[in-house]
C-alpha cells in the first residue's frame, strides 16, 4: 500500500449551518483523499461555527480576524498559527475573505512557505455581479441582459430595454422580481439602502436553474466539473438536495469559460437553462460551493485536486463523473461542553 503524504491544511468556512459555508464538505473531501494524510486546522470567525466542535473533522481551530480588519492583521494571525502548525496549504472558502488572501498569496508563499491556489485578483474582480455584462462580452458567454442604475429617475426608461417582469439585484446580495416600474422603485430604494449603488436590473428568464462545481488549473484546463440540479431548496434559497446530471452543453460552456478566463482554483457557476435551450450565466462564485462533496461522491475529488495544484503538482483532468447521484443535506445537534466554548471564546483556539 502506498504511504499517504502527511500534510497540514487550514480551511475556513466552518459554518455548517442552514446557509452553510463550504469548509466542512471541503474537509470531508480531503479526509477521503487516497494521497494525503491530512491534519486539518480550522480557521473560524465566530465561536459557534459548528466545525469548531467537530473533532473528527477538524483537528484544531484558531479564530482569525474579520476580513474588514485588513490583510496586515490577518497576516499577523497567520504567522502565529503557522509558527505552531507549520501549514502547507490554506483553502479559504468565503467570498468576503478572498480579497485579502489573494493579496497575501505571494507573501504567504515567500515568508511562510504556505501554498494557496486562488483566482487572480483580475479574475476575482471581473466576475463581480456588477461587472458580469462586461465579463459576458469579453468571454462570449450569454448573460441575461442587465443594466446598472444609479438613480431612481432611470427607472421609467427601463421599458425601452426590458419587458416586465425584471429582476432587481443588489451589488453583493439580494434579488427581487419586479412586475412594474413602481415595484422596481420600491426594490431600488430597499436594495440601495442596504447594499449601496449601483442597483442591477436584469432580464427575467424563464427556465431551470443548474449549477456546476468546477476547478481550473490557471492555464485554461478544466481539471474537474460536475453539474447539479437543485431538487429541494430551503427558504434561504440554498440547495437541501440536488442530483448530478448529464448535460453536454453545460459542460461545454463550463470548459469554454474556464479556458477563456484561465480560471485558477475552485468555482461554482449558477446558470439558467431557458425553455429554448439557451444557457445564461447568472453568477460565478470564486470558490467551491457548499455542495462540493457531491463531486467527491460522483468520483471527482475537487478539493484534493486543488491541494495538489497548490503544491505545484501536475494534475490530469477528471474524465468522468457518476450521473444521477444525489446529495441530501441534514442537520445534527452536537452536544458541546462549556469549557470548549470558553476556550474558543477567550483564547481563540480549540
Amino acid at each position: 500500500m502506498v504511504k499517504k503524504k502527511k500534510i497540514n491544511i487550514a480551511v475556513t468556512g466552518l459554518n455548517a449551518i442552514d446557509s452553510p459555508g463550504p469548509g466542512v464538505p471541503v474537509i470531508r473531501a480531503l479526509r477521503d483523499s487516497k494521497l494525503f494524510d491530512v491534519r486539518i486546522i480550522g480557521l473560524s470567525y465566530e465561536s459557534l461555527e459548528p466545525g469548531i466542535y467537530m473533532h473528527d473533522i477538524v483537528d484544531k481551530t484558531y479564530q482569525i480576524p474579520l476580513p474588514s480588519a485588513g490583510k496586515a492583521t490577518l497576516m499577523e494571525r497567520l504567522k502565529y498559527i503557522n509558527s505552531i502548525e507549520k501549514l502547507d496549504v490554506i483553502i479559504p472558502n468565503f467570498d468576503a475573505e478572498l480579497f485579502n488572501f489573494i493579496k497575501l498569496a505571494d507573501t504567504l508563499k515567500k515568508e511562510l512557505k504556505i501554498n494557496v491556489f486562488l483566482p487572480t485578483l483580475e479574475q476575482f474582480e471581473e466576475r463581480h455581479k456588477s461587472n458580469l455584462p462586461e465579463f459576458g462580452k469579453k468571454h462570449k458567454i450569454k448573460i441575461p441582459h442587465s443594466k446598472l442604475i444609479f438613480n431612481i429617475k432611470e427607472i421609467p426608461s427601463l421599458r425601452n430595454e426590458f419587458t416586465y417582469p425584471v429582476v432587481v439585484k443588489g451589488k453583493f446580495y439580494d434579488a427581487s422580481i419586479a412586475y412594474s416600474p413602481e415595484q422596481v422603485a420600491t426594490y431600488f430604494n430597499k436594495i440601495s439602502a442596504k447594499w449601496g449603488l449601483p442597483v442591477i436590473i436584469q432580464e427575467f428568464l424563464h427556465g431551470q436553474e443548474v449549477n456546476v462545481t468546477a476547478i481550473g488549473d490557471g492555464k485554461g484546463n478544466t481539471i474537474g466539473a460536475v453539474p447539479m440540479r437543485k431538487q429541494y431548496i430551503t427558504d434561504k434559497g440554498k440547495a437541501w438536495s440536488g442530483i448530478s446530471i448529464d448535460d453536454k452543453n453545460l459542460m461545454n460552456m463550463t470548459r469554454k469559460l474556464i479556458k477563456s478566463t484561465k480560471w485558477r482554483g475552485g468555482m461554482e457557476l449558477e446558470i439558467i437553462k431557458t425553455s429554448e435551450g439557451d444557457y445564461y450565466l447568472i453568477e460565478i462564485n470564486p470558490r467551491f460551493p457548499a455542495w462540493v462533496y457531491l463531486a467527491v461522491g460522483c468520483g471527482q475529488n475537487h478539493p484534493e485536486a486543488l491541494v495538489r495544484l497548490a503544491l505545484g503538482q501536475k494534475v490530469e483532468p477528471f474524465k468522468k463523473y457518476d450521473i444521477g447521484k444525489l446529495f441530501v443535506r441534514y442537520s445534527w445537534d452536537m452536544i458541546v461542553e462549556l469549557d470548549e466554548f470558553e476556550k474558543i471564546s477567550t483564547l481563540g483556539e480549540l
Partner: peptide, 9 residues
C-alpha cells in the same frame, strides 16, 4: 462560574 482565562459564566 469563573475561570483563570477571565471567562465568566
Amino acid at each position: 462560574a469563573l475561570s483563570d482565562s477571565g471567562f465568566v459564566f
